[in-house]
Design a protein around this nucleic acid. Structure first.
Lengths: 242, 242
DNA sequence: CGAACACTTGAACCTAATCAATGAGTGTGG
DNA sequence: CCACACTCATTGATTAGGTTCAAGTGTTCG
């Protein structure tokens, strides 16, 4: 039973959940390991979308940049999640860059190879499709948030997601947290606001005891308070100049 | 050769492109026809996601509503496109409502049935996956636009998409125009702005000769001008009070 | 120690949301 | 046909929320 070569994360990963050990082994052997040091780029926006990945360890940040230089972060990838999804579909080039936030390991498959795997293992195709569905829904929710919620609410949403380490799944669930390492700039890019707004907002929350902040660090202290802000209670000591 | 029962649109639809006639026939027979008069709702946000659809004729508007009443329109569906995609993935309930803008016809499959069809016809699964990928990419682009583009630019984008009848595909391609029937309110919901802003902007463009407007009508006259606005030339006679 | 980086904070500015009032087209029934 | 109500749209005035500029503080690193 212990003769399999694939790592445990793969077996519980988004695309591979519920597959048989020999299927997992075949999938594992078809892929190639890819390692990246902190800050290293796994692929860049605009490059031909050659490979599809599942993250095994570490943390990867997806970054999307416009001509005029502003950036958005459509997602953070945790171990077990897939990324570069477009390579599993027809897209020609990567629409985002992927940057390792910590030293990371991923398995990658070429599109052709992954497609033939999906043909062979329908469950793999199904899982992949379901993950796509969740992400699509998620992205549309974000669009809605961008037009209906204030920047304060969106920042609260980002902090809660960071604290729970879930960007993908609905996951209201418990499992609290630990100070998160993230720059103000990144929070801004995740929430669709500016650096200054984030700084002010966090400062104000810090004074109100909702969070604790530091250099590249945010710790959520009162998740319920943030949730309340997210849901629209503007009452929380949020006014501009504190 | 003419003994097949399925309609031509199905054969060229997003999920069924490139399938064999007998596959198409089997898929067709597994589905159920659904008709809706103008303004009628095919399904409502929050209902259990029972069926997955392909639109055969007419036009369907997807609407997403928040607790506080504001609405967004994540997509307009043209014949041949799929909708209620989530029913092909694991989602429990519809995240949007679907409303027929004209008298419309759609084929629907229950999730279980569509999944078994995808198992039988891998090409069907592949097409569906690819459509998901395109939509995901599209949704993320929109998120980016919401945080980087002005409302004017987003409205221009919406008008161009409407005039080209393409919300899904990258489609920069030609095929111009015709007056589009759409309320200001709907343009607002598609562009993530407010009714008043849309009205003012269209009025200003109308004076500048870029569009012609009427009750529930917008005709794009100068697509290149709009494209220029979309790309950031704020020069175009856009200042507030005209 | 000096330079680069990450963050904070005040002040000015401006976009777009909102409120309020009016006007124009559509449809219905007397 | 005209009066009525209704929906959809325009426009002015006001204002709040957030971006941006500019200057300054504190930290980390070579």
């Amino acid at each position: 039973m212990s003769c399999w070569g694939y790592p445990a994360v793969l077996a519980e990963s988004q695309p591979c959940a519920g597959l048989e050990p020999n299927a997992l082994e075949a999938i594992w052997r078809a892929g190639e390991i890819r390692e990246a040091g902190q800050g290293e780029r796994l692929f860049a926006q605009g490059e031909p979308a050659a490979r599809f990945y599942v993250l095994l360890s570490g943390s990867v940040k997806l970054v999307q940049i416009t001509k005029d230089g502003s950036e958005a972060i459509p997602g953070l990838i945790a171990p077990g999640e897939m990324f570069a999804c477009v390579a599993a579909t027809g897209a020609a080039t990567y629409p985002t860059s992927a940057i390792a936030e910590e030293p990371s390991t991923a398995v990658g498959w070429t599109r052709a190879r992954f497609e033939s795997l999906m043909l062979r293992y329908p469950r793999l195709a199904e899982n992949t499709r379901n993950a796509f569905g969740r992400r699509l829904q998620n992205a549309r929710e974000r669009v809605l948030e961008m037009s209906t919620k204030t920047s304060e609410q969106r920042i609260a949403a980002v902090l809660l997601r960071l604290a729970r380490r879930r960007f993908d799944r609905p996951a209201e669930g418990a499992e609290l947290r630990a100070p998160v390492t993230v720059s103000r700039q990144d929070v801004a890019a995740m929430s669709g606001t500016g650096l200054y707004t984030v700084s002010r907002t966090l400062q104000s929350w810090s004074r109100a005891g909702l969070v604790e902040v530091g250099r590249r660090q945010v710790a959520v202290i009162d998740p319920d308070g943030l949730t309340r802000i997210y849901q629209g209670d503007t009452c929380a000591a949020a006014s501009r100049s504190g």
